[in-house]
Design a protein around this nucleic acid. Structure first.
Lengths: 365, 365
DNA sequence: ACCCTTGCCGAAACCGGTTTCGGAGCCGAT
DNA sequence: ATCGGCTCCGAAACCGGTTTCGGCAAGGGT
């Protein structure tokens, strides 16, 4: 930065922090008065407050959050703890998600304290540690579970948090969520529009709340398309490429296989390509696939995956904003937002090439 | 809020922090003495020190880093600032990398302060802000540039840092790095071992220090294989799938195309698949590809990418460990480590199917 | 027996803020 | 003229630690 001024490299005065005492001196006031002026106490004359604010600005005064924290308990730090051992982890979108969170955070001069936990129990321990050490004033909890022990813990500790995803028991919970059920519903309608009558659904893990929602979306889509749901075509628990492949080959080797498959997650949908290849089928021709997430790998698959794209960066931004407001005292009920996922058309879906019977015959051979 | 104390779920006493004053009381000592005992001052009797340590343990005393920080300036927080706008960003390995850093950090009860910057200058501003606000005691700097302004800044501010990657001017720098030049050298030898004589190299951006090293590795490998380097087969600046594809098709449409291509990064190598497809060629048969990074997408490509795998998690762990030691006062010269990347054999390389001339003919048609 | 170290701890200042408390000054009302 | 109520700010305690300073007692040397 400052290698400009001065002689060669060195006249850089040690970046002196300006303290509240210096500021008070300059103003001919006491520390206490300055502090109250800056923090909006009502017992300060408007003229004085203005004078203080101006001078603070001019001197570049920034209160040291550490010092504030020991009295107020607030650090101006958001907390995020990821579980590093989950299979279909939030790998791909992590970068965007983090960028979203930290961009909004730094705009309002908050920071992000990040940690990982390698298991569920360790997750709770880590949260408690961060709270106890006051390393975060509140938390963003991604990958909401139907019954989420993290939310229970934080509610009990009376620590603010915001969920990325809704939850079964909304009591005291703020959240941001993408309406995945809508997306899945539209996926079904699109399949039906292509002419598919026999459509399967490969869901994610049942512990996650989004799974229940997306299943609802699937059923509703089927109902709107006037198609009956064949329960044998409803699978769940696939959130990795491997398990997605397994689910796909199980579906395709049924006596009457589906011609279209809707996946709750892209990771699983990528497995369909493997299963199809093994069976000598072509995705987008012999079997149609529509999915949800919008991970980059989907665009690189051949043919590219048709999927509902989630804007992870925007999600991070919204979540950070909500959490800050929550920490500053807003009621959780007032902090609930949702957004839509948008269809990104690839080549993995289209009209069915064969009827289910013909497809079965083709697979047998 | 206060749905806590009362009757049902609630015998949880508010997680009272135990302060140094309470501890001192219990011991019949003063705060000052306890503090000195715990921080290893020499003017404390061994017996007393032991007694204090035991009692601290028993009462679960953990000093509040915020409070320590206002006197000592140390927060026990590592800083990491990522640049969110770089094209071939560290997307895929980010998750593992972060998990590595934060696992080592929390083992030693440090935390990780994370931020992103959307441009080079903003990066420097963010670093300065975090230093000024004392949100981090030191930084991990990934993606080392040949001449890295981040390192310059932090050196000037006298703030500890560790580079992920070596640097042209090592003065005062600690680092961890993978010996990418070794990997590239081995890649060349492997190509030569398959029988390739005409081998191209697609390097990353010249601003990165690793590019110079990997080019050295390539040339050394060629020398060891007794092959002459054709300078027209040396390309650089490809760190995305798109630019990798462009580089590949430029190479393959030359009058005398290479039969094997070594890439400095996986992201670029994935582009080779696209270029090959466009030209009607098969990767691993018509043209061989070996690369470096070990990103997951490589394993999912068809055929899977042969690449030198980097253990990002381990790298994160090493870097965190080095930085902590650096912050605690170790000399930077003593904190320089390297590790190897390991070959992960896929199907993207093999003996050349055609001689360069035949390949050219095939491509013309 | 005296003095001088040395070992060990208490007392108090300090870090940079926040928050409570009380009182000075000004106003209008009685 | 006296009183009460407000407005506004200073003084000082406080938060949870660290660090400096000084002094008491025991030990060693002469």
């Amino acid at each position: 930065m400052d290698q400009t001024n001065g002689s060669i490299t060195t006249s850089r005065l040690p970046p002196q922090r300006v303290t509240i005492a210096q500021l008070a001196d300059k103003l001919g006031l006491t520390k206490g008065t300055v502090s109250r002026a800056l923090n909006g106490y009502p017992d300060i004359a408007d003229a004085t407050r203005l004078r203080v604010q101006r001078q603070a600005e001019r001197m570049g005064y920034r209160p040291l959050t550490q010092a504030q924290a020991i009295r107020t308990g607030r650090t101006r730090a958001l907390g995020l703890v990821l579980q590093s051992d989950i299979p279909g982890g939030q790998r791909p979108f992590l970068s965007d998600f983090l960028a979203g969170i930290s961009s909004t955070a730094s705009e309002q001069s908050w920071t992000l304290t990040f940690a990982t936990a390698s298991s569920g129990p360790e997750m709770l321990g880590t949260l408690e540690r961060l709270v106890h050490e006051r390393k975060a004033d509140g938390f963003i909890l991604p990958r909401t579970l139907r019954h989420d022990p993290r939310a229970d813990l934080l509610r009990q500790l009376d620590v603010p948090f915001v969920l990325y995803g809704r939850v079964a028991d909304p009591e005291g919970c703020a959240w941001f969520d993408i309406l995945g059920e809508d997306a899945i519903r539209q996926a079904v309608l699109r399949m039906a529009g292509h002419g598919h009558r026999r459509i399967a659904f490969v869901n994610g893990g049942a512990v996650y709340n989004f799974s229940a929602l997306r299943e609802d979306g699937f059923r509703q889509g089927m109902a709107e398309a006037a198609l009956a749901v064949d329960e044998s075509l409803m699978l769940e628990g696939a959130m990795t490429r491997q398990s997605g492949a397994a689910a796909t080959s199980r579906l395709l080797t049924m006596p009457l296989p589906p011609t279209g498959i809707v996946f709750a997650t892209d990771a699983a949908a990528l497995g369909a390509y493997d299963a199809a290849e093994t069976l000598g089928l072509e995705v987008g021709q012999d079997v149609s696939v529509i999915s949800y997430d919008g991970i980059p790998e989907g665009a690189w698959a051949r043919p590219p995956l048709t999927t509902f794209n989630v804007d992870s960066r925007a999600a991070g931004q919204r979540l950070a904003g909500l959490l800050i407001r929550r920490i500053e005292g807003a009621a959780p009920e007032a902090l609930r937002e949702t957004a839509q996922a948008f269809l990104k058309i690839g080549g993995s879906d289209g009209p069915p090439r064969h009827a289910p019977e013909a497809l079965a015959a083709r697979i047998q051979s």
